Amino acid sequence: MADRGKELIEKLRVKPGKPFDLKDRDPRDKCGFDDDEATKTETEMVAHEIDALQDRLYAEGQRALLVILQGTDTSGKDGTIRGVFNATGPLGVSVTAFRQPSENELAHDYLWRVHAVCPKRGTIGIFNRSHYEDVLIAKVRGFAPKETIEQRYAQINDFERMLTENGTVILKFMLHISKKEQAERLQERLDDPKKHWKFNAGDLDDRKLWDEYQDAYETMLNRCSTAWAPWHVIPADRKWVRNAAIASIVKATLEEMNPTYPKVSWDPKDFKVV
Rank of each mutant, 00 (worst) to 15 (best):
C31T: 06
E218P: 04
F199Y: 14
A216M: 09
L204F: 03
E212C: 08
W197K: 00
D270L: 05
F127R: 09
M45H: 11
P230Q: 00
A236L: 07
L221D: 11
P262I: 01
W231I: 04
S178C: 06
V14S: 04
Y261S: 04
K194D: 06
N86H: 02
K251T: 08
V264I: 08
K23H: 04
G202P: 07
L8R: 10
E150D: 06
G83S: 15
W210F: 01
D78Q: 01
A38G: 09
T96N: 13
V264G: 10
Q100T: 12
R207T: 03
N166S: 07
K139I: 00
G79S: 10
F271P: 02
T123F: 06
R113Q: 14
E103F: 02
A138E: 12
E160R: 05
M220S: 14
A97W: 00
G76S: 00
Q54L: 10
L106R: 14
A201L: 10
K179D: 13
K15Q: 15
D134H: 05
A87Y: 13
E37S: 12
K30F: 02
M162S: 10
E255L: 06
D109E: 13
I50G: 07
K269I: 03
V140K: 08
A201R: 02
V250S: 11
D211S: 10
T74I: 03
L204C: 02
V274N: 13
G167D: 12
F85A: 14
F199Q: 03
G125C: 08
E184S: 12
P16I: 07
R25V: 15
T80C: 11
F33H: 08
I68A: 02
K120V: 15
A245C: 15
T43P: 08
I246C: 11
F271D: 09
K139N: 03
L91I: 05
M45I: 14
D205R: 05
P268E: 14
L57D: 12
D203Q: 00
E42K: 12
C31D: 07
D34G: 04
K272W: 11
W240Y: 15
D34C: 12
A52R: 14
F98M: 05
P268G: 00
S178E: 07
A216R: 01
N166H: 13
A183W: 11
D55F: 13
D3G: 08
G5K: 02
P16F: 08
F173I: 02
D78C: 09
V140D: 00
G76N: 06
E181F: 03
P16D: 03
P259Y: 04
I156S: 04
Q155G: 00
D134G: 04
